[in-house]
Design a protein around this nucleic acid. Structure first.
Lengths: 199, 199
DNA sequence: GCAGAATCTGACCGATCGGTCAAGGTACCT
DNA sequence: AGGTACCTTGACCGATCGGTCAGATTCTGC
């Protein structure tokens, strides 16, 4: 018997499963999310999930892989360009847009990147993050610089998903406001300011 | 038998298990950590773990409960005191010391606080965090203010544990340096600065 | 209409999960 | 020696885990 729960759905099943899985992975955690839960949320059976994706790991890879691709492009462009304050400003804006456009994926590998080190796509993500850190902070960067960078990136990533937990339902932020605020705060942190050295 | 006056006192099993469990919970995740893993790491059997703690949840509660107690005291003192820049500066310093002294517990409920909402001690932690946010940010705080606060706290918490992942083995930070750097960065974010409003 | 590919599903597998229980070990008390 | 309170453990339980597989169903090109 066909279940018309998703019979009329024109969304491709694989995409739908990716989205549901990403929501679970980012909020509940990869290990804590079972294939059965993903299947239930998406309206499929567990077997169907494993038909579209060879394994739970492959599903994770498929869900956050594109975001890592974007991040690597972002990193490449930044490394190719200069490290002037102007270039940094452009990078910050693009980086915030990246965070907003891939918030679930970002939250997943930022929060769980250290516990999933044996998964290839996570290794790719960690490498990219380290690359960005190396690019922003010179080799002779001070501890303060490294802390500043880590606080900025991790804090920004956290605010996009978990931060919503601490807001009332009717006090949720507007994405446009969040974008502007994140750019402001990250600029304060990562751009040279009067009387402060960034390297 | 409570009193053991021998010079070399054995480590109490419950404390040892708490420590091992906390290391696992903070790095691998609560759901992803099995009682068997904890038992193996501590050199006990799974049954012994469940002898000292009624359940996996009770073990979590026992492991991060004291940190939440400290956080609540910290919050209470700050609320009782003023919100002057000087009071904020004192709070920031105490907060950083709290983070350094409870880094594993903090990392656990900051990163997983949203996925463990049904556990009492986690609810307590979330309430405390929200209380701190309300105290630092006035009701009429701008979006930028909220973002700044969230980035600061989440970023700082993340840097203490996960941040170590992105450092080479022989380039680890010194705690004294980290303390000073965190105070610097958090002060930049949360204290009123020239030409910028904090509320 | 029909063949074949694509999709979906329930039954099933070995492993592991959190948790229970009774038996045994050990140290100190009288 | 017995008693007893504390500690540790293996055997065991039902449930669920990720994953396999054969078969039923739907879709598509001819």
């Amino acid at each position: 018997m066909p279940t018309d729960a998703h019979a009329t759905s024109r969304v491709r099943p694989a995409d739908e499963l990716r989205q549901v899985a990403l929501e679970q992975f980012s909020t509940v955690g990869f290990a804590a999310t079972s294939l059965q839960q993903i299947a239930d949320h998406a309206g499929y059976s567990k077997s169907s999930v494993l038909y579209h994706f060879a394994s739970k790991e492959a599903l994770l890879e498929s869900a956050i892989g594109p975001a890592i691709d974007d991040l690597e492009v972002l990193l490449g462009d930044f490394v190719a360009g200069g490290r002037s304050p102007e270039a940094r400003a452009v990078f910050i804006e693009r980086f915030v847009d990246f965070l907003l456009g891939n918030r679930l994926a970002v939250h997943t590998f930022v929060n769980q990147g250290q516990s999933l080190l044996d998964i290839p796509v996570i290794q790719r993500a960690n490498t990219a993050i380290r690359g960005i850190a190396d690019s922003i902070c010179a080799d002779d960067a001070t501890v303060v610089e490294n802390i500043r960078f880590g606080v900025a990136l991790a804090g920004a990533a956290y605010m996009l998903v978990a931060g919503a937990t601490f807001r009332d339902e009717d006090h949720q932020f507007d994405d446009v406001e969040v974008r502007a605020a994140l750019i402001t705060v990250l600029s304060e942190l990562l751009l040279p300011a009067d009387g402060r050295s960034t390297r």
